[in-house]
């Protein structure tokens, strides 16, 4: 499923919020479909994460 930028403008934002809760609440208040991610930092330090990503060819 790829939704283009055009689709975003035409159908309006349907948002996944990662980070500041305030942004999520403001979107809820505007009745924008929005899901908040209860994000946590990765367990692994960044050098390990980088190697993992490399391993996966990213």
């Amino acid at each position: 499923m790829t939704l283009s930028f055009k689709d975003l403008l035409n159908s309006g934002p349907k948002v996944i919020n990662l980070g500041m809760e305030r942004f999520y609440l403001d979107l809820l208040g505007q009745e924008v479909p929005v899901v908040k991610v209860n994000w946590r930092p990765p367990l692994a330090r960044s050098s390990l994460m980088d190697r993992l990503r490399k391993l996966r060819g990213e």
Binding site: L3, S11, K14, V15, I16, N17, M20, L27, P33, V35
Partner: peptide
């Protein structure tokens, strides 16, 4: 949210 079209990242 299967039809999500934007990630707002902060």
């Amino acid at each position: 949210l299967r039809d999500a079209n934007l990630a707002l990242i902060s």
